[in-house]
Amino acid sequence: MVAVSKNRPQELTRAELEIMRILWAEGPAVVHALLDAMEEPRPAYNTVSTIVRILEKKGFVGHKAYGKTHEYYPLISKDDYARRYMDTVLDNFFGGSLSRLVSFFSDHKAISVEETDAILNLLRDKK
């Protein structure tokens, strides 16, 4: 897989993320298949085609050509993107502190006892 530049992580727009979610879930697809997988109201074919080409320029998507038809596939995994995105959030909003991130969520969203136990177990397993 081709890696997105680590020096300048790129964030996906909402429209780009929608297409990437489909590619991550469904695998390689042509533009018509991407459109079929989208919820209503669906964008125009040319819009989806343009967004996919932007994703390709950004290094998130590659393609195989079959004549005039292009089948697109992700070059970065969902986990790799999520890791980079969360690292950016952690650095930009919480000074790189995981405890400040968890504190933020506990202050702004009710965390159940089960979720708290799951977090603690994950942290214990990482030691």
Rank of each mutant, 00 (worst) to 15 (best):
G27H: 04
A29P: 01
A29F: 07
A29G: 10
A29C: 13
A29W: 09
V30N: 09
V30S: 08
V31Y: 03
H32T: 15
A33F: 01
L34F: 03
L35N: 01
L35C: 02
L35W: 02
D36V: 09
D36K: 14
D36T: 12
D36R: 14
M38T: 07
E39Y: 07
E40A: 12
E40V: 07
P41Y: 00
P41T: 02
R42K: 10
P43Y: 06
P43R: 11
P43F: 05
A44P: 04
Y45D: 01
Y45V: 03
N46K: 14
T47F: 03
V48D: 00
T50G: 11
T50Y: 14
T50Q: 15
I51Q: 11
I51M: 09
I51R: 08
V52K: 01
V52A: 08
V52Q: 04
R53T: 13
L55T: 04
E56T: 11
E56S: 10
K57W: 14
K57Y: 14
K58W: 13
K58M: 15
K58L: 14
F60V: 05
F60P: 11
V61E: 06
V61T: 13
H63S: 15
H63T: 13
H63M: 12
H63Q: 12
K64H: 13
K64I: 14
A65F: 08
A65W: 08
A65H: 10
Y66T: 09
Y66H: 13
G67I: 00
G67K: 02
K68E: 09
T69D: 05
T69L: 13
H70N: 12
E71F: 01
E71N: 03
E71D: 04
Y72N: 06
Y72T: 09
Y72E: 07
Y72Q: 05
Y73R: 04
Y73N: 07
P74E: 03
I76A: 07
I76H: 02
I76E: 10
I76K: 02
K78W: 09
D79F: 11
D79G: 06
D79S: 12
D79K: 12
D80C: 04
Y81V: 00
Y81A: 00
A82G: 00
R84P: 05
R84W: 07
Y85Q: 09
Y85I: 04
Y85R: 12
M86G: 05
M86Q: 12
D87M: 11
D87G: 05
D87S: 10
D87H: 07
D87Y: 05
T88P: 05
V89I: 15
V89W: 07
V89F: 06
N92H: 10
N92I: 10
F93A: 06
F93W: 08
F94D: 00
G95W: 00
G96K: 02
S97M: 04
S97C: 04
S97G: 05
L98I: 06
L98Q: 03
S99P: 09
R100Q: 04
R100G: 00
L101G: 00
L101I: 02
S103K: 11
S103E: 14
S103P: 08
F104I: 08
F105L: 03
F105S: 00
D107C: 08
D107E: 14
K109W: 14
K109M: 15
A110R: 15
A110K: 15
I111F: 03
I111T: 08
I111K: 00
S112C: 02
V113P: 10
V113H: 12
V113K: 12
V113I: 11
E114N: 09
E115M: 06
E115R: 02
